[in-house]
Amino acid sequence: MKKVYSSAAEALDGLLRDDMFIAAGGFGLCGIPELLIDAIVEAGVKNLTIASNNCGVDGFGLGKLLDTKQIKKMLSSYVGENAEFMRQYLSGELELEFNPQGTLAERMRAGGCGIPGFYTKTGVGTVIADGKEVRTFDGEDYILERGIFADLSIVKAWKADDTGNLVFRKTARNFNPPAAMCGKVCVAEVEEIVPRGSLDPDHIHLPGIYVHRIIQGEHEKRIEQRTVRSREDA
């Protein structure tokens, strides 16, 4: 079965529609599927619900889908770096469901593992618990959170082989594996597609069973906060 496609647009062909639910990998601007986001902008599908820890920045990453008003609702833990996000949210154009970061990651992982709900103590006694079932285990309260089952996952990895086995690099792994797992279909963009057999099977971070389509491309990999120390201080 062919998993390797020549472009982001080709890899997304037949997968996009209005009102769909997309799970996206990345943390801040680190490890985000920039090429697939650009292709979704190009495709113009609207009313999207997107589960992603953040929503990019103005004009980059998922922020591009805000500029084109293609997003109806975000499930995120932190949306601080985006003026257009705040404008749309405060004017009521954009819905936002805050999820604690670990709860969002576990909701994706759970969905990918066929688990429709799980109990967690994160958020007990806060607004996050409003309207959720509370259950006591061994004298401690937990709230019920739902697994996420997305229509489509878009993720970014470092390397892939043609069977979809993925290897990530450093902290660019972040939400990509759980986001990949929770979609009916997962499209991955990578920096390099390597020949089958050249990845050590013991070093695969995400097995190809979760990955249906792959593209290779050039990534801008923008840095959000460039912090350095001087060599004299060392």
């Binding site: 932190y78 604690p100 970061q101 670990g102 103590k121 994160t122 996050i128």
Partner: peptide, 12 residues
């Protein structure tokens, strides 16, 4: 801006 990972950290 959001709670990020703060709720998970303090609970866990």
């Amino acid at each position: 801006k959001g709670m990020g990972g703060a709720m998970d950290l303090v609970a866990g």
